[in-house]
Structures are given as structure tokens and as C-alpha cells.
Design a protein around this nucleic acid. Structure first.
Lengths: 314, 314
DNA sequence: ATGAAAGCGCTAACAC
DNA sequence: GTGTTAGCGCTTTCAT
């Protein structure tokens, strides 16, 4: 076992409470004493045991982050923001990958509850009941999901969809496919809502396809269906799917954007790596992890078209 | 504060130790008693406080994972493997993103040390001295780095490079560029070693370029240099760079694989998403997280060409 | 300004 | 098979 507060106390010839104070309330101990304590601690390589501390203070210094899939660039970007911000406030993050499974989601939150000061649920897919049951267990904040009375960081997905639709409409598209993602996705529903609301005014007919897995493969699969419906533009659930669509279109000899336009969501880094032009609705993922002064964390953040890839239309 | 073992004990009308036993050594308590305890616990929503437990057992049930960059698909794949495996053994993972900074790496390991049973260091870039200083702080296992006496999961990068070179050579390439990644990358050095060793026998001239950032942008940048050197094939440090190369080549009107062949490393999912054919040396990332019975965790794991994209050569 | 002592929630001897 | 008790490493009254 590592060096404890007692050994430091002994080494510095003071009581444990003095050592404790030297760390947690430095200016309540004599400057000379403090210096000595800190020095001894340094020499011994002492680091307070945060678990023990948490036991008495009730604050663990840990925050939990649950994502549906770490390997999804959208979520790994979020995760990166979370870890960075956590470090700033001297916290450490407990990560759980829910493997896109609502049950696992609920389970891991339960398991984490006791050892974190709160958990960030990224795009949780679990049903409202389970969600409510978790409240009270530990402070919760949702990302991209709006649930009665729960604090959330929301990105305005409906407006993103509207923007995309208006953009395509302005370019002359009249028949546009929408590729849905997971049924339980709040963002997905929001997009659909935005789409339906905006369609009449834009004078476009939307073909609603899906649901599909929010993956490259999902896009490949969806592309064929969209093609069969004779659309001139495709709105994919996210960039991963959009890239899949792009790939399948290329394989089938369909030119982008000449024959068909493709629009994604999220603006993951990958979307700037495609050969064919991919327009994407940028979601402010890193900003979502920033402190309130920088970003309205209880309100919603607004999507925008990405700068580097100007809309190309079909 | 949440429900403790005492309240369960009171509710089930037994002592705390019985409750404790009911959870940790179920068959040392009378079946009827146990059933009652578990039932009461369930009703009260009791979950043992793992921090408190760890305080006495000395085992935290946490494992730390440090990666240079969560947003790098190679590492998020590893991370996914780690979290999955951790869950199997009822552990939770503490994640730290070192932001490609060796100092941060050392720092976070220090901070984690006390609250984990061990830490997994993915491709650590810190120098040997710092690394050695960390030993003894907490059990360490390195991924893709070989350091005196430290347990490690190694992928045979040198052999991967050899395979790639032989493959290209067999296709007739005689002048091949190698794009180096971060100078502190063990895997990078291994590849270079493998390359140099294999070059003479393969009758190829290798042009060593770099170092470049292990990113898409790094690849874009490197592509121009490689082009200027008149090579017919390019070996990139990883798939991210390879995709950058592909992109730049397309922009400059260079046909792949007609004019130039591109080979990457890692076989991240993205590499199957490119339009131009990208050959990649698959690294067994998920397997690296598996238990010893499945994978020789103290030895090395061997790379192989990826099945889905058979080598296409230039 | 500093020390002694009482726990935080839990497990592990040690009794019975 | 079950209860009692002594800590794990730390913070925090309460004295001094």
C-alpha cells in the first residue's frame, strides 16, 4: 500500500489534521509548518487518497460519461471535450460505452452512481421510465435529449434539418430522401420534426426512409433504397451514414453532386476527408463541454453549416 | 446521501456483516437469510459503495486507461476494447486523454494511481525516465511500447512493415516512400526498423520522410513531399495519414492505384470507407484487450493484411 | 495554529 | 451461520 497521511504527519512531526489542512485549507496553517509538510509529502511521494476523502466529504471528484459508442467519431469528440473540461476542474472521468444498448446504459449509470458526483449521458437511448428511475440516484445531465425537468445540453437538431432542407430547396431539389437513424434517438426525432415543418414552405417532397443503423454500413444499405425512390438529394442521419451513402453511390456509378447531393449531420472530422463533396450540418460538440460562460449549457446550441466545405448542391 | 449497508441490515433485521457477506460471499450465509437481505437491498435500491469497499480491500475495481487522443479511431477502438473487457470483469474504466502531450501523460497516471488497480498506457510517448518513475506507483501495462521489464501488449509493427514492403515489391515497386509519425512512437520506430531490414532483400529503395503529425492533415502535407520524390508507392504511418494522402493525391489528379499505391497501418474502420483503394496492415486492436486465453497478452500480436480490401498495388 | 477523536461505508478477523 | 469490533485513509468538529 502506498504512503498515507500518517507517514507524512510523522515525517513532518505534526498531527494528521495539520497535514490534511495543509492540503485542503492551506491558509489555516502556519506558513512554516505548511512548507515543511508539503516538502515531506513531496519527498515521500504522498498523494491524498481521493476515495477516502470522498468517503467523508461526500464529493468523489469523479464524473461519469456514458456514450452509445466510443468508436463513433461524434461521441469520441464529445468524450474528448468532457475529459478536457474535467481535467480543468480537477476531476477524472469514468467512461462507459453502452454499446448502443439501452439496458446497458441504465445498468452502467446505476453502477457508477455511488462513485461519481454526477453523470453525463450522451444521447441516451433508454426509455423515459428508466431515465426517471435514475434521477435521484445521482445528478444527471443529458446531451441531445430533452426530458421533463432534466438538465440538458441540446443542439438544435430541428433547425439543423430546416437549414439543410432550405439549402437543398434553394438549389432546386424537389424530392429529397431522409435517412433515419436509431428510433430512440431524440436528435433524430427532432430532425424529422424540423423537416416536416419546413417541407411545405420549401416546396419539397420528403421521402422518409429508415430506421438504419447510424453507421457506415447503414449508409451503404440506405443508399440503394434512396436511389430506388428517385430522389435528387439525400439527408443522412449523421456523417458516418453519409459517408456510407457516398461510398455506395460511387460504387454504383452515381456522380455526387452532379446526380445526387448528399448532406450529413455532425461535421465530424471525417467528413472533410471524403473525395466526393459532402455537405454537413455542424454540431458544436466541443463547445457543449465548455463552462456556462462560454456556452449556454442549459439552453440549446445552434448548428451551422460547416465552413470548409461550402454547399455544393446537385 | 444514498442508502448504506446499515439501513439494509436494519431492514432485513440482521447485522451489517451478514449483508456484506450476502453480497461478497453469498454461500456463506443461510439461503433464506440471503434471500431476505437481497430483497430488502433491492427494495431500498442499495448498491455497495465501491470506494468504501476499496478502502478496506485494497482493490478499487477501477482500471485506468490513458490514450494520446481519444478522437483517433485507432485509440477509440482500443478504448472500446478496454471498456468492454473491463465490464466483463466488473471493473470500470478511468479514462484520460493525454492530448498527445508526454507531460500530461505522466501527470494523469500519477493522479490516477491511488484510485485504480492498474493502468493501461496506450502508445505512451513519455520518455523512459518518466515511465520508470511511474512504476511502483501502480501496476502498469503498456500497449505498443517495449520498455525494460514492463508488461506490454505489443503488435509486431516491424513485421507489418516487412509485409507491406514485400507486397509492394512483388507488385513491382522499386521506389517507396515511408511517412513517419511522431518521433516518440515506438511502433513508428519498429516499422522503420522492419523497413530497413527488409528493403535490401526486396530490392527496393525507401525514401524516409517525416516526421509528420499522425493525422489527416499530416497525410495531406506528406503527400506533396512524397510526390516530389518520384515514388510509386507510399507507406503511411497510420490510416489517418493514409486517407490524407489519398485525398491530396486525388486533389492533384494523381490516380490511385494506377499512378501511386498507398498503404496504411491499423485498419481502422475508416479505411474501408475511402473511394480510392487503400491497402492497410491490420493491427489486432480488439484482440489486444482480450484475456490471455484468447490472445498472448504478454507476447506480441501479429499484423495481417486486411481481408475486405485485398491488396491492389499500383 | 494545532491536536485528539469521531466517524464516512465497508470488509475481515474473531468470537459465539 | 451470524454478530461484534477494529480499522482502511481521510476530513472535520471540538478542544486547547
Amino acid at each position: 500500500m502506498a504512503v498515507t497521511i500518517h507517514e507524512v504527519a510523522k515525517g513532518a512531526d505534526v498531527s494528521v489534521s495539520t497535514v490534511s489542512r495543509a492540503f485542503t485549507m492551506p491558509d489555516m496553517v502556519n506558513a512554516a509548518t505548511r512548507r515543511k509538510v508539503l516538502q515531506v509529502a513531496e519527498e515521500l511521494g504522498y498523494q491524498p487518497n481521493r476515495a477516502a476523502r470522498g468517503l467523508v466529504t461526500g464529493k468523489t471528484g469523479n464524473i461519469g460519461v456514458v456514450v452509445p459508442d466510443v468508436a463513433n467519431p461524434f461521441f469520441s469528440a464529445m468524450l474528448k471535450g468532457c475529459t478536457a473540461r474535467a481535467r480543468e476542474v480537477r476531476h477524472v472521468v469514468f467512461l462507459a460505452d453502452a454499446a448502443e444498448d439501452p439496458r446497458v446504459e441504465a445498468e452502467v449509470v446505476g453502477a457508477m452512481a455511488k462513485q461519481v458526483d454526477g453523470v453525463v449521458l450522451c444521447s441516451p437511448r433508454m426509455d423515459p421510465d428508466h431515465l426517471q428511475r435514475l434521477v435521484g440516484t445521482t445528478p444527471l445531465v443529458l446531451i441531445n435529449r430533452d426530458e421533463a425537468g432534466l438538465p440538458a445540453v441540446l443542439m438544435d437538431s430541428a433547425d439543423g434539418a430546416r437549414q439543410a432542407l432550405e439549402h437543398l430547396s434553394a438549389l432546386g431539389h424537389r424530392r429529397i430522401a431522409h435517412l433515419a437513424g436509431p428510433p430512440a434517438s431524440w436528435a433524430g426525432e427532432e430532425r424529422l420534426r424540423g423537416l416536416r415543418a419546413a417541407a411545405p414552405a420549401c416546396d419539397v417532397e420528403t421521402i422518409e426512409l429508415g430506421p438504419f443503423p447510424p453507421t457506415f454500413q447503414g449508409g451503404v444499405q440506405a443508399a440503394d433504397l434512396a436511389l430506388a425512390r428517385g430522389v435528387t438529394a439525400i439527408l443522412a442521419f449523421n456523417d458516418l451514414m453519409a459517408v456510407g451513402v457516398l461510398n455506395r453511390l460511387a460504387a454504383r456509378g452515381v456522380a455526387v453532386p452532379t446526380d445526387i447531393s448528399v448532406v450529413g449531420f455532425d461535421d465530424i472530422e471525417m467528413s472533410s476527408m471524403t473525395t466526393a463533396p459532402l455537405t454537413t450540418v455542424r454540431m458544436p460538440m466541443e463547445a457543449a463541454a465548455a463552462p456556462p460562460s462560454t456556452c449556454c449549457s442549459t439552453g440549446s446550441t445552434h448548428p451551422s453549416s460547416r465552413a470548409p466545405t461550402p454547399p455544393t448542391g446537385g
